[in-house]
């Protein structure tokens, strides 16, 4: 159980809740200081071992999970990696959920109404559980960049949203994966909420050894969850 205990706070790589360049944080971030609590049994536990019963079956190949008869358009990619703790030990039995725009940068969401085409063969959501080595793997397509209303001529860099839920409530993580050599990253307010050099943890690496011949380009993206913390409750 101690493996799931979070470490001390103040991790420099974590963004603040309030980051005014990302405008909608201004009215949606607390002004009062967070109340620090040592982890209790509540935060040290989580619904590991229940994913199928909780959420239903895995979806690992997003290129064949639209509702059209065919295969998604776009650059086919493999995204794979490991979920680790801060001591670089694998975290098995963690559910990895992803969602993303299609190759043209459009979500199937009704709230996304910009002038880019939808792909009937692409929904853009998947979910797998890490294996004994903490590994996960998706096949999908490379998402396009898309505009948003944060400021004039604002474009999100191409990204995949990832959500991780594992053996402990305290180690919950939601993040975004970016692609190497994307010039939009350095001018994106959401990515820039993370200070350098830690922002680069969010940039996947192209890997020719993960690339599948005649099928898909390969990207590696490891995720590191909070690790152990010796802070006890005072009796």
């Amino acid at each position: 159980m101690s493996d799931a205990t979070p470490r001390p706070r103040g991790e420099p790589g974590q963004p603040p809740s309030l980051f005014p360049p990302y405008r909608s944080t201004v009215l949606r971030s607390p002004r009062e200081p967070l109340v620090r609590i040592p982890p209790t049994l509540t935060e040290l536990t989580g619904p590991a071992g229940t994913w199928d019963a909780l959420m239903g079956p895995a979806i690992a190949d997003l290129t064949r999970h639209g509702r059209g008869p065919g295969v998604a358009l776009g650059q086919r990619i493999v995204v794979t990696g490991r979920v680790l703790d801060e001591d670089a030990r694998p975290v098995p039995d963690t559910v990895v959920e992803i969602w993303q725009a299609n190759a043209a940068g459009r979500y199937i969401h009704r709230g996304d109404q910009w002038n880019a085409p939808l792909d009937p063969n692409f929904t853009g959501t998947g979910r797998v559980v890490t294996d004994g080595g903490g590994r996960y793997r998706f096949t999908t397509i490379r998402p396009g960049a898309y505009p948003w209303g944060n400021h004039r001529n604002a474009w999100r860099p191409a990204h995949i949203h990832l959500s991780l839920l594992g053996p402990a409530f305290a180690t919950r993580l939601v993040t975004q994966l970016y692609f190497p050599d994307d010039p939009l990253i350095e001018i994106d307010p959401i990515a820039n909420a993370v200070p350098m050099p830690y922002r680069n943890r969010l940039v996947a690496r192209f890997d020719i050894d993960v690339t599948e011949p005649n099928h898909a380009l390969g990207y590696v993206f490891d995720l590191v969850l909070r690790g152990r913390d010796a802070t006890p409750w005072e009796a």
């Binding site: 974590q14 670089a88 959501t125 949203h161 590191v224």
Partner: peptide, 20 residues
């Protein structure tokens, strides 16, 4: 650069990917 993966927002379009 090994260390905690930074958080990022779920954004506005999570509805078909997270809540079932």
């Amino acid at each position: 650069l090994f260390g905690q993966t930074p958080w990022q927002t779920v954004g506005p379009f999570f509805h078909y990917g997270l809540p079932w």
